[in-house]
Amino acid sequence: MDNEIICIGCGAKLQAEDPNKAGFLPTSALNKAIEAEDQEVYCQRCFRLRHYNEIMPVDLNNDDFLALLNSLAEKKALIVNVVDLFDFSNSLLSSLKRFVGNNKFILVGNKFDLFPKNSRQSKIKDWMRQEANRMGLYPEKIFLISAARQKFLDELIEYLNANSQDQDIYFVGMTNVGKSTLINAIIDKMGDIKDLITTSRFPGTTLDRIEIPLDNGHYLVDTPGIMTENQLVAHLDPKDLALVSPKKPLKPATYQLLPGNTLFLGGLGRIDYLKGESTSFTVYAPREVYVHRTKVSNADEFYRKHNGEMLTPPVASKDLPELKGQEFHTTYKSDLLFGGIGFITVPEGCVVKAYTPGQIGLGIRRALI
C-alpha cells in the first residue's frame, strides 16, 4: 500500500525503511498519509527543503533518469528543454535529438530577468539558436523567461496551451536550471495551486517524473534533472551555490586593464590579460562574487594565499578541481563565459587566458550587450 503513495513535491514513492533513500517519511507520518488518502503528502526531504531550505542527501541514479528520457522518443509529446542562460552550453541537453524522436521541441532560456535591462531578446535568441544548431539541435521556437519572478510567461503559456490539445508536454533539462520553478509558475498563472512541486537551488530536487493533469486530459510532466560533472553547480556546496546564484540583475562593473593584469572572480574564475592595448573589461557577475585585480606575475601566489578567504566564493566547497586555463584571442567584441558564475565582456584584439575549476563552463561568444 505505502508503495502507491507518491510525494507530490519530488515524485518519489514514499517509504519508511531507509532515510537515505528517496521518499523517506517516518513510520508515524506515513501511516497518517495512508489513512488520509486524499491528502497531499510531502516526503521528509521535500518538507525540509520547503520550510527550512535545508538539503538532505539522497541516493540518486542517473541511469534511471536517462531511461526515463529515452522513453520520450516512443511517445507523442512536445519536449520543453529548459536551460540556464548563465550556463547555456552546459545546461543544453546535447543528446536531446536522441530523446526527442519525431517530436517537436522548444528551448526555454531561464533567468532572463538577470540580464541588464538594455539586453535585446532577439540577440540572445539568435545566439541560443546558433549554439543549438551547432550541436545539431533545431528548436521549433525559443522563449526567454524568468521562472522565479514569473515574468515573460504569457507567450510561452499561450504556446503550451495551443500545443497540449493532442499531446503531453515534457519538461527536461539539467539540474538547477529552474524546471520545477517554471512549472510551478505556469500552474500558478493557470490556476490557484501555488508551489505544488518542491523547488530549490540545490541540484537533484525532482526524483521521479511528476504529472500535472490539464483540463484537456493531457499532462504537464516534470522530469528529473540530469546531473553532469560539466556544471559548476555539481561541485559546489549549498552555501556557495547560494552565493553564485544571482537574485538581482547583474550590474556591469568596468575595470581598466593593461597587459599583465589579472582579474579574479572570487576563487572560481580568473582572467589574465596577456596582449593588447590598455582597455576596459566589463564584469557581469553576482554581487556576492568578490572581484579582485592584481598582476599576472603574482596571481598564482595570491590565489594560493587567499582562495576561500579574500577570494570568495568558495567559502564552504571542498575538493574543487584546480583552476585550469584556456587562451582566447578576440577578433571582435566578445563575452568570455564563466558558466554558472557570469561573463566578462572583452574588446576585440585582445589575447587573454581564462580559468575556472577544471575549465568547467569556459567559453566565448560574440558580445550580447
Results as ranks from 00 to 15, higher is better:
P19I: 08
G23M: 12
L25A: 15
T27N: 11
K32Q: 10
E35W: 12
C43M: 05
M56A: 03
L66R: 00
S71M: 10
V82T: 15
D84Y: 05
N90F: 04
L92M: 15
L93R: 03
S95D: 06
F99C: 06
G101K: 05
N102C: 02
F112G: 06
D113E: 06
D113K: 07
K125C: 06
K125E: 02
W127F: 06
E131H: 00
M135L: 15
L153F: 09
E158I: 04
S164M: 06
F171C: 06
M174N: 14
N176S: 15
K179A: 11
S180F: 01
I183P: 10
F202M: 14
D208Y: 07
I212P: 04
Y219R: 11
T223K: 09
T223N: 12
V233Q: 07
D237N: 15
K239D: 15
L241Y: 09
K247A: 13
K248V: 05
P249Q: 15
T254L: 02
D272K: 03
E277S: 11
E277I: 13
S280Q: 12
F281G: 00
F281V: 02
V283D: 04
Y284P: 08
E288N: 01
E288A: 08
E288Q: 07
V291N: 07
F302S: 02
H306A: 00
N307E: 13
P313D: 04
A316G: 05
A316Q: 01
E322F: 13
K324M: 02
Q326I: 13
E327K: 07
T331A: 05
T331H: 10
T331E: 09
S334V: 01
L337D: 00
I341A: 05
G342A: 02
I344D: 11
I344T: 10
V346T: 02
V351D: 10
T356Y: 04
I360D: 00
A367D: 08
